[in-house]
Simulated scan of single mutants.
Amino acid sequence: MRFAAIADIHGNHAALQAVLEDIAALGIRDIVNLGDCFSGPLEAGHTADLLLLLDMNAVQTVRGNHDRYLLETPPETMGRSDAHAHALLAPRHFEWLRKLRKTMIWREEVFLCHATPLQDDVYWLDTVSGEGRVGLRPQPEIEHLAEGMEQSLILCGHSHMPRVVTLSDGRMIVNPGSVGCPAYHDDEPVPHDVENGHPLACYAILEKTGRGWAPQFRTVAYDHMVASRLAAGAGRGDWASALATGRMR
């Protein structure tokens, strides 16, 4: 079994297109998408049109927390990134979002979720200190969140940071990183920045071998300055910096 995992596109159509081209060039047809598809000051509508087309061709998607916000939050009370995306989405896009499941077992061996199995807005493999430092979550806490799951491979997103953690029983948890947002600021659970340090689009290839799962993280170059200028034009200097450099200004 060999397939690609993408996550956290956040409306970055150009990054998604580049990643899909890279996946196709590798001869991979099956893709799983771990959510947070549209939220951001970029091109939610174009991104949605592309994902709706792909959904008909072996792409399985689960719902992210920002996908949920787009459905459940009144537009007048949305955050800026969600509100920008909401204004660009058509009824068919919202109908597609409504059909997404929170979690999914894919091909009996792979568990898909956006963040954790029970919560779509909590980091699984990462933790934030009281001072706002982001680091690897302690192994016992990671293991606790995986209790009762039988699948040998577990995929999650949300933190935008590529990571792989092997559990004590041999199961593996992989975060493929973010296709479209290499850095961001969040206020929960305390104010903190997530920074990948580069502007490249990220995803992962998962292959099952005779020795178990072998994840391969890939980075893809695209015209990230076009995306950065889009964000700047929308009044989002924070996103403009993140897309240009992979760091918060």
Rank of each mutant, 00 (worst) to 15 (best):
S178G: 13
D22Q: 04
F217H: 09
D8S: 13
H160P: 11
S159E: 06
V19N: 03
A15C: 10
F38V: 04
D120A: 15
G135Y: 05
W124M: 14
P182F: 03
T73V: 11
E207I: 06
V122Y: 01
R229C: 12
M78K: 13
P189Q: 12
D193P: 06
L50V: 09
G45R: 13
H185T: 10
R171W: 05
A244N: 05
L20N: 10
W106M: 06
L88N: 13
W96G: 01
Y123R: 07
E21C: 13
A25S: 15
H144Y: 09
A204P: 04
C202D: 09
A234R: 12
H160I: 09
Y123C: 04
G246R: 02
L155Q: 00
S241N: 10
R80L: 09
A115G: 14
R80G: 07
M104L: 15
A5S: 14
R92H: 07
E95P: 05
R229V: 13
S129M: 10
R63W: 01
V165R: 15
P138S: 11
M225W: 02
P41K: 13
H93V: 14
R2C: 06
S241R: 11
A240T: 07
D67H: 00
G237M: 14
D120P: 05
K102R: 14
A7G: 12
P41F: 08
G233L: 04
W106Y: 09
D82E: 14
G40V: 01
E195A: 13
D238S: 08
W106N: 02
I105A: 15
Q17M: 06
A44C: 08
I205E: 04
E131C: 13
H13V: 04
D187M: 10
R98C: 12
S178C: 12
G197N: 07
T103C: 05
M104P: 01
P75Y: 05
E207T: 11
L100D: 10
G235F: 03
A25M: 09
D82K: 07
E143T: 11
S228V: 02
R101K: 14
V59Y: 01
T245D: 03
I28W: 00
R133S: 14
I23V: 10
A90P: 05
G210I: 05
C156Q: 11
W239Y: 11
H158W: 11
S39E: 02
D186G: 11
A234Y: 04
G237T: 06
L243W: 00
G130T: 04
L26H: 09
N196A: 08
Y123A: 00
I28H: 07
L112W: 00
N12Y: 02
S152Y: 01
P199R: 01
E95A: 15
E143M: 06
Q139A: 15
A227H: 06
E141K: 11
V110S: 00
V128R: 15
D187F: 03
Y203P: 01
G35T: 05
Y69N: 14
W106P: 01
A14D: 08
C181D: 08
T47K: 01
P162V: 01
Q60S: 11
P191F: 09
L97H: 03
R137G: 04
D187Q: 13
L89Q: 09
I205V: 15
Q119W: 04
H192S: 14
A15V: 02
T219S: 10
L89F: 02
I6S: 00
H46L: 10
D8V: 01
